[in-house]
Design a protein around this nucleic acid. Structure first.
Length: 635
DNA sequence: ATAGGGTTAG
């Protein structure tokens, strides 16, 4: 009978009388606990009515009733309501069991108030492994790694053994400088507790190792997993991808795919990132086809990655097609498209697209993309105007990358002194990227004194980068200062140069052919070297002369010429020409920046062979046609 | 009740 009374009281507060108390069975009301109706209201999603009921019931709300209330608050992320439930417990002197305290902690965490979650945690008379794990997870997911690790240690000290949830959670906080150390400790703990081969723990472990660049350890964990699922398979692929081990990422994907691995959009995102790095257009298209055939839902992130992949593979029309097909775009979609145009030197397209941005707010990446796009596209004045508008229209505070773009823009326009002044007036420390682009500008504009100053600055910060010495050597050689060329070479010898070896590659029928400088490993090396010689003779007639200042070895000119002709991009280009089908663009990818001599070589080869040659170097695309390059000789 | 993988620039 009390139940009936309560029902009537609650009803008076309710607007829609006819729909009230769905599912309430009035048969034997006295058998039901007093908060039965409260539970039903929660299950029915009628939270405000349930809260009213809670207030009316006062001290008669029991464990199940509170549980239902808190659960509904968690589901809805309803903080205000959650606080009322918590306050009600305190007011009615209800002493929640561990379970309910933990639920409250989770409620505050999911509602985004970490401090309140922690307050609940600290006030708990007892804690179990779930309470500890929930609290660790709360810190971990917000990036408070040391707090998460500290709690984990505290938990171990109190004698609560971690379970698979705890281990998977805490491993996500094992990143950063000492992450590996902590991660290894957690790993041995996982082994001790027999959780090493658990799927979740395993993928967390391998991610921890991948983030610490210990990819072999990650692979070991992966290989030992008895049951693999999408996430663990994707983790190893993305581990390789994020460390730039793109070949391995593709290789392991191919192997797992043959074994029937399940793929979802995260898998494809990781894989496509690696294919972008490899410039593997054919594979990229194939994976795109797989995405469509598998009817993977068209998540924005996946489409953004497709835009990026096509851009990096030199196929802007495909990028644009994906971009146009998107029902919704984020700022990243626009940025990926802008970056693609910019890397191809299409400044006009960059500006047009930038001006047509709708429904999104440009961010700092947008401005970096636009400014560097202007620079690569030869639109120095437009770029400077856009930078100034950032400041005057208070769009955002320019960051170091934006300043670097301005240095590049000024340098391109030949305003070297202004660029130097700009660097001096900056509120930030100049970076190697800035000095590097300025040095390039000094070369293009033949400014020796500024070049010397810039090189001095650059070589102080980055003495191990051989490319910097080469450009300085180019500057001196262009001015006929041979004694300085020799000095640069000696300067370079003093420092031990840890140069990343030059490497170029080209795809033919989905087979990647990689060439290293003076390659002696490719099966057709003799033919390839002969083809370079052959091209060399042909382009000499068109005015090519080897630029010996690109070689900083202490050898005679004949030997220098041999070294120059052995540069990996020349080998790749020659291989592409000799292997044709003779149509379409020849696409070469290089891991470093292309040198002046190879740039000249490619221009003239495009002229005498009548083929279009695209070279993606570490900075941008160069499209060579009829003896000209899309970069306008500035890069 | 508590858990693992993903996008743009440099």
């Amino acid at each position: 009978m009390l139940g009936g009374l309560r029902l009537r009281r609650a009803r008076s507060s309710c607007e829609s009388l006819s729909t009230f108390a769905v599912g309430f069975q009035p048969s034997t009301p006295s058998d039901l606990p007093p908060d039965a109706n409260l539970k039903l209201l929660c299950l029915d999603g009628r939270l405000s009515e349930a809260l009213w009921e809670m207030a009316v019931l006062a001290t008669e709300v029991m464990f199940r009733g509170y549980d239902a209330l808190v659960t509904e608050c968690v589901n809805r992320r309803a903080l205000t309501e959650g606080r009322r439930v918590h306050a009600h417990m305190i007011k009615t002197s209800y002493r929640p069991p561990v379970y309910l305290d933990t639920r409250l902690l989770i409620m505050y965490d999911k509602c985004g108030v970490l401090a309140d979650a922690r307050e609940v945690f600290d006030g708990m008379p007892q804690r179990n492994v779930v309470s500890w794990t929930a609290m660790i997870s709360a810190y971990s997911q917000r990036g408070y790694q040391s707090e998460a690790l500290g709690l984990f240690r505290w938990m171990l000290r109190t004698g609560v053994p971690p379970n698979q949830f705890t281990l998977a959670t805490v491993l996500a906080s094992c990143t950063g400088p000492q992450g590996l150390e902590h991660g290894r400790e957690v790993h041995s703990l996982a082994i001790k507790n027999n959780y090493e081969s658990h799927v979740y723990v395993g993928s967390s472990l391998l991610n921890m190792y991948a983030k610490a660049s210990e990819i072999q350890d990650a692979r070991k964990v992966f290989d030992m997993l008895p049951d693999r699922d999408v996430v663990s398979c994707t983790s190893i692929i993305s581990g390789y991808a994020q460390l730039g081990h793109d070949e391995e990422a593709l290789e392991v994907f191919q192997k797992l795919y043959k074994q029937g691995m399940e793929c979802n959009y995260v898998t494809f995102v990781s894989l496509l990132t690696s294919l972008a790095g490899l410039s593997a257009l054919d594979y990229g298209k194939q994976v795109h086809g797989l995405v469509i055939r598998q009817q993977v839902p068209f998540y924005v992130i996946l489409q953004n990655t497709l835009i990026y992949m096509y851009g990096r593979c030199g196929s802007l029309s495909y990028s644009r097609r994906v971009f146009e097909s998107m029902p919704e775009r984020t700022v990243i979609s626009w940025n990926a498209m802008l970056v693609g145009y910019g890397n191809h030197g299409l400044g006009r397209e960059v500006i047009a697209l930038f001006k047509s941005m709708r429904n999104v707010k440009p961010d700092h990446v947008t401005y970096t993309a636009v400014l560097s796009g202007c620079s690569h596209g030869g639109l120095a004045d437009e770029g400077l105007k856009i930078f100034n508008s950032m400041v005057t229209e208070k769009v955002m505070q320019p960051e170091i990358g934006h300043y670097a773009c301005v240095v590049d823009l000024l340098g391109r326009a030949g305003k070297i002194e202004k660029a130097l002044e700009f660097i001096k007036g900056m509120p930030l420390e100049p970076t190697t990227a800035m000095w590097g682009s300025l040095l390039g500008a000094c070369r293009v504009h033949g400014n020796i004194s500024a070049g010397e100053y810039t090189a001095q600055r650059l070589l102080c910060i980055e003495p191990e980068n051989a490319g910097n010495y080469v450009i300085l050597s180019n500057i001196y050689a262009d001015a006929g200062r041979w004694e300085n060329v020799i000095r640069v070479r000696e300067l370079m010898k003093e420092k031990t140069i840890m140069k990343e070896p030059g490497r170029s590659w080209i795809y033919l029928n989905k087979i990647v052919h990689t060439f290293h400088s003076s390659d002696r490993t490719h099966p057709q090396r003799d033919e390839v070297h002969a083809k370079v010689r052959d091209l060399y003779e042909k382009i000499k007639e068109a005015g090519y002369a080897p630029n010996l200042s690109c070689v900083l070895h202490d050898v005679d000119d004949e030997q220098k010429e041999r070294i120059l002709l052995g540069h990996s991009e020349k080998l790749a280009i020659a291989f592409g020409i000799m292997s044709g089908p003779q149509d379409g663009i020849l696409r070469v990818t290089k891991n470093l920046r292309i040198c002046v001599d190879c740039h000249n070589f490619a221009k003239l080869v495009s002229l005498v062979s009548g083929r279009e040659i695209s070279v993606r170097d570490s900075k941008r695309f160069h499209l060579f046609a009829n003896g000209e390059c899309s970069c306008g000789d500035f890069w």
